[in-house]
Nucleic acid binder design. Structure first.
Lengths: 239, 239
DNA sequence: GTGCACAAAACTGTATACAATAAGGCAATA
DNA sequence: TATTGCCTTATTGTATACAGTTTTGTGCAC
């Protein structure tokens, strides 16, 4: 059926069937800012695009809502979440609480294999930036933090960090101030160097300042960016 | 058909309709150890008990699985989660990381109303213990921690603590060593006293030692309690 | 021209029917 | 008697139909 090709630009061009997990596809699209905060995710729309029934779409949307990537409003539908300024602050406070210590832990447990993974990751980030794929760069940048949390080998805390990073990508989509490429290119590199030396204290310090850097690149004034909520009230789809 | 009235002993005796939220009911049952780790939660069974369709049961089970209170196995069904020894340690490490600081925060923001709520909560705990309702006491004991996290007014971290407390109740169900009543009766009281004085440092210290107390009351030797994993592999239902 | 009321359309919430998969039992054979 | 293979049964995965709610559009009155 040749209908609604509009949204297919925002989502993976699933070749008529299961390209993989619906949750994953949507997550990636949100991570990469192809689906922006406030976007309505209609059930019929998604079931058309992915050629599955609304049942599985609903399950996917529910899963995403538990990750707080989408917000479900009863009888209204699913929307990509729009973290408030307050939530944004809270999320970065939580990250500042969890991630530096986790980076230390990761440094102490670092292996050659893990180090290689991180280096490959940074390489991929650079490539994405140079290729002008800013969305992909944002996503990889977040996944770098997730990778570190997994190396720290604390699944429970890693899961929390994963959730925080996910929501952070929404925050970046809304509140990011600079248009230029990501500024944390060097920060990630410096972190890897600390990891190579298994210098836990340095890794912890670097992570802490790195998070502060990101936070300082956000415009979290209460009065700023009113267009965000406005978009969610007025506009329905991001044409 | 007059089948499976057995499970109705474990669940709220819903009077033929909606007593409230299915997720809440199941959560409470798990919190109170009426549903034990490893218990199979069949969809038909639940839809019979609650007089709703499998659709809503599935949604509830999915929600609980995202809270990590139940584990979903594809084509196998839903089971009350059975945290491993390792997960138990991780969960309490995470609590030790988050809760003491949160207690300090709560102390600094304490209001009369919040204090009254906490005192009422402790009162309810005592009543449950004296009434011999051990399950209810366990649940209230956990909710005390959740209440504190809400007072700290950091929704993101409060949500994490909520998840940790939820899983902790599973851990207690599996690994709790002592049969006697909960030992943290005085710990909670001492915390409230610190809160009353708005003594953040004291609250932080008390919470830290309180968590260590709980941890020390668990039997987390790797070799202990093999019947847990065994039960999940061999046994199907805990009759 | 503006505002309100009513109706119709679109969408979500729920139930149910069917398909697919896994579990358990029975029989046949070694 | 133990084991293996198949078949029956039970349970989950998915699709679809219907009911309820929200939204939107139209028309009438002011």
């Amino acid at each position: 059926m040749n209908k609604a090709p509009k949204e297919q630009f925002f989502l993976q061009p699933v070749v008529n069937g299961s390209s993989g997990d619906l949750v994953t596809d949507l997550s990636v699209a949100i991570y990469e800012h192809r689906l922006l905060p406030g976007t309505k995710l209609g059930e019929d729309e998604l079931s058309d695009i992915y050629n599955v029934s609304r049942t599985v779409v609903r399950a996917a949307l529910q899963a995403l809502s538990h990750l707080q990537l989408v917000e479900l409003r009863r009888n209204r539908g699913a929307f990509v979440s729009q973290p408030t300024v307050r939530e944004a602050r809270e999320i970065f406070e939580a990250r500042a609480l969890l991630e530096p210590r986790t980076a230390r832990s990761a440094a102490e447990r670092m292996t050659d294999a893990a180090l290689a993974r991180l280096e490959a990751h940074i390489e991929a980030e650079h490539e994405a930036i140079h290729a002008g794929e800013q969305g992909k760069a944002v996503r990889l940048s977040g996944q770098f933090h997730i990778e570190i949390s997994h190396i720290a080998d604390q699944a429970t805390i890693a899961e929390f960090i994963e959730r925080l990073v996910a929501r952070s990508s929404l925050i970046v989509a809304i509140y990011w101030r600079r248009q230029s490429a990501l500024c944390d290119k060097h920060a990630h590199h410096a972190l890897v160097e600390a990891f190579r030396r298994k210098d836990g204290a340095e890794a912890e310090a670097l992570m802490k300042s790195h998070l502060l850097d990101i936070l300082s690149a956000l415009d979290l004034r209460e009065t700023a960016k009113p267009q965000t909520s406005l978009k969610s009230i007025l506009g329905k789809s991001p044409d």
